[in-house]
């Protein structure tokens, strides 16, 4: 049986500056499966909190409109154009945002797409992996909607969630940049185990609590995380 949960918490920097959370998250059931999207508006862009919210909503709408059935390039192009169309005004750079999305059908087939930083982790049939390459530059440097046009900047993966403990975890860089790279699998397993055993509402609260008491010193960034996983029936 599939389980899903997600949470977002505004970072201390934006909280103290009375600025909005630039992260966004959307989690929806879809035909027996789940759709999850997280997005992180670029810190330096004035309206990126608008861009991130519209990105996750447009991504879900693309799924519902069957875009995912097309070729990957066509699907991304269609989604990107839809996002540009819904933006207020014609300044996509001001609303630039990263995007990570996972669509999992009722049989556990899961498609993951990522543009920009953040982390998409998956456990599948005893294997573990992360979508995309590690960060080469510095923190807060990233490809993004509204900035990056190249299709090659997107990263994809297709996995099957079959066994209990299999799952996909998406997170923005407010968390990803503070994780030990060699402990990512343990992190994903801990999250999936702790959130799923609590049920959906308490699992979300548990995730929010963990984001609120984030252990890294002087952490400032907004934090968003979501998961889709298999639990025993």
């Amino acid at each position: 049986m599939l389980f899903a949960s997600a949470a977002t918490v505004i970072g201390p920097a934006h909280w103290e500056a009375c600025e909005p959370n630039q992260d966004a998250v959307l989690l929806r059931g879809h035909r027996g499966g789940w759709f999850l999207a997280v997005a992180d508006g670029l810190g330096s862009r004035q309206l990126s909190h608008v861009g991130s919210r519209l990105a996750v909503r447009t991504a879900y709408r693309s799924l519902r409109n069957g875009l995912i059935e097309r070729s990957t390039r066509e699907a991304i192009q269609g989604f990107y154009r839809d996002w540009l169309d819904v933006l207020p005004g014609k300044a996509p750079g001001l609303m630039a945002t990263t995007l990570l999305a996972a669509s999992c059908n009722r049989d556990g087939r899961c498609v993951i797409a990522q543009l920009g930083d953040g982390l998409a982790l998956y456990r599948s049939r005893g294997g573990f992996g992360a979508v995309g390459d590690g960060r080469a530059g510095f923190v807060n440097e990233t490809a993004a909607l509204g900035v990056t046009k190249a299709f090659s900047a997107w990263r994809f993966a297709e996995v099957e969630l079959v066994d209990p403990g299999d799952g996909v975890v998406l997170m923005t860089d407010g968390l990803a940049d503070d994780l030990h790279p060699e402990r990512l699998e343990g992190f994903a397993r801990k999250l999936i185990r702790e959130a799923s055993k609590r049920g959906r509402r308490r699992g979300k609260r548990w995730l929010e609590q963990q984001l609120a008491v984030w252990p890294t010193a002087m952490h400032a960034d907004d934090k968003t995380i979501g998961m889709i996983c298999v639990i025993p029936k």
Partner: peptide, 18 residues
């Protein structure tokens, strides 16, 4: 209580500031 609650994810995160 929430403030006092310690993180359950310390083993996986870098303690030092960026």
């Amino acid at each position: 209580q929430m403030k006092e609650q310690s993180s359950k994810l310390k083993d996986f995160t870098v303690a030092e500031a960026r």
